[in-house]
Simulated scan of single mutants.
Amino acid sequence: MPNFKAEFERFAPDVILDLIPYTETQAQAVVQVFSDCTQHIVAISSGDVYRNYEGLQGRSNHPPDPVPLKENAPLRETRYPYRDLEGLDFEFKQDYDKILVEQVLINAPTLSTTILRLPAVYGEGDRLQRIV
């Protein structure tokens, strides 16, 4: 992406839509590349940022937060939720953390940021079979 910075600046998009920000480093690269050529970024995050996700993983003794969760519901207290999970392998497993991605993007000084926290699919349509 940094290799195309000049082309992005020439194009001067009104909005950047980042569909796959997995890591803090990726978010930092997005800020570095697009800070000078746009004013707004929309990034896809995940419902796994919420504290209830730790309970789903069996990593928290905290009672579940009331559902439906609101945007300002408490976030996970731990980081890197997939590092220790067996049977789940993807390229960014060790550094994946949408909380850190959100923090980088929201704190970018020259970008207005919209974060969309989309849910994962659980149950019959879940290709990863998170719940058996």
Score class of each variant (00 low, 15 high):
88 L>T: 11
111 L>H: 09
98 K>S: 07
121 V>T: 12
113 T>G: 03
82 Y>S: 02
76 R>G: 03
117 R>T: 06
81 P>M: 04
89 D>P: 00
113 T>Q: 05
74 P>E: 11
86 E>D: 14
92 F>C: 11
114 T>S: 14
75 L>M: 08
74 P>R: 10
86 E>P: 11
113 T>R: 05
78 T>F: 04
83 R>I: 01
83 R>G: 01
122 Y>G: 08
78 T>E: 13
88 L>P: 00
87 G>I: 06
119 P>T: 05
125 G>Q: 12
98 K>V: 01
78 T>S: 12
88 L>H: 12
99 I>N: 06
106 I>C: 09
70 K>L: 12
79 R>K: 14
101 V>H: 01
125 G>F: 14
79 R>G: 05
101 V>G: 01
101 V>F: 01
91 E>K: 15
103 Q>D: 15
120 A>R: 12
90 F>T: 10
104 V>W: 02
96 Y>F: 15
101 V>E: 01
119 P>K: 05
95 D>V: 01
113 T>S: 11
82 Y>Q: 00
77 E>F: 02
72 N>D: 15
110 T>Y: 12
85 L>A: 05
115 I>D: 04
119 P>V: 02
103 Q>G: 09
118 L>F: 14
80 Y>D: 03
115 I>K: 08
73 A>N: 06
78 T>M: 10
95 D>R: 10
74 P>G: 08
112 S>V: 07
81 P>T: 04
110 T>V: 05
121 V>S: 07
106 I>Q: 13
76 R>D: 06
75 L>G: 00
122 Y>C: 11
94 Q>H: 12
108 A>G: 11
125 G>D: 14
86 E>S: 10
107 N>P: 02
106 I>P: 01
119 P>G: 07
120 A>E: 11
112 S>H: 14
96 Y>H: 11
90 F>H: 09
85 L>E: 09
101 V>D: 01
119 P>Y: 04
111 L>I: 07
93 K>G: 01
84 D>S: 08
113 T>W: 03
79 R>N: 10
95 D>L: 07
118 L>E: 10
102 E>D: 13
73 A>R: 06
120 A>N: 12
91 E>F: 15
103 Q>N: 14
114 T>H: 11
98 K>R: 10
88 L>G: 03
